[in-house]
């Protein structure tokens, strides 16, 4: 088996294959970052919505809870399939990458919303009362008092979640998105040894994921002890 690797190596480590894998890596990153950014924004909205108390927003609050609890309990693979078969008949021009990104959005919204909610809840209620009696609007309280204190509770698990999703996007290969995993399959189908093909793909994932997870660990220790700045 090692002879085969040594024999194939010159053909494998070519500029063309490198660009091919880098392109796939880019799509993996794109799905994750775009999906999780949108998920973070919408998730923040849902988390804030769930903190409101107005009676007329009650249906919206329940809808938010239902959404979060539902999508945290469905495998990403199943969500991918549902999104694919839902979008394709409506809008056949949608690219597979876009469809997969939508699925990432749906999932990350639910998970990040829970992370953000826990972060917002970590800020003592008295901080809000202080702001309230100084005539802060709820929005001002959120922006100037709660979020600046909550972000250090939110950030470490949020980064950890993004790291997890870098890996979970490998399932988008099933849709035919040429991200890293699918690229690995293509390389192997071209006749390269699976050891080389998938080995390279594992290394590529590691290169994406490891720095991010180090960042997450770093944030966790740093923000855990730092002052509130």
């Amino acid at each position: 088996m090692f002879e085969r690797i040594i024999e194939e190596a010159p053909r494998f480590f070519t500029y063309y294959n490198l660009m091919f894998v880098l392109g796939a890596m880019w799509r993996t990153l794109l799905m994750t970052l775009v999906g999780c950014s949108i998920g973070f924004t919408v998730g923040l909205g849902l988390a804030v919505l769930r903190r409101t108390s107005a009676a007329w927003l009650r249906p919206a609050r329940y809808a938010a809870i239902l959404y979060v609890e539902t999508f945290r309990r469905i495998p990403f693979l199943v969500v991918l399939f549902i999104v694919l078969y839902f979008i394709q008949p409506i809008y056949s021009g949608a690219s597979l990458l876009a469809i997969a990104t939508v699925a990432v959005c749906l999932m990350s919204t639910a998970f990040l919303s829970e992370i953000i909610r826990a972060g917002l809840e970590s800020v003592p209620r008295q901080q809000m009362e202080s702001a309230e009696v100084l005539n802060f609007h709820p929005g001002q309280t959120l922006a100037w008092v709660i979020l600046p204190q909550a972000w250090k509770v939110i950030l470490p698990p949020a980064v950890a979640f993004v790291v997890m999703f870098v890996k979970d996007t490998s399932l988008a290969s099933q849709l035919g998105v040429v991200e890293l995993t699918y690229a690995g399959k293509i390389l192997v189908n071209k006749g390269f040894s699976p050891l080389l093909g998938f080995g390279a793909i594992l290394a590529a994932y590691f290169i994406l994921s490891y720095p991010l997870s180090r960042l997450g660990a770093h944030l966790e220790t740093r923000l855990g002890t730092s002052r509130n700045t």
Partner: peptide
């Protein structure tokens, strides 16, 4: 730091 799917592949 690598996907379970690729590990199984």
């Amino acid at each position: 730091n690598t996907p379970a799917l690729v590990q199984i592949f």
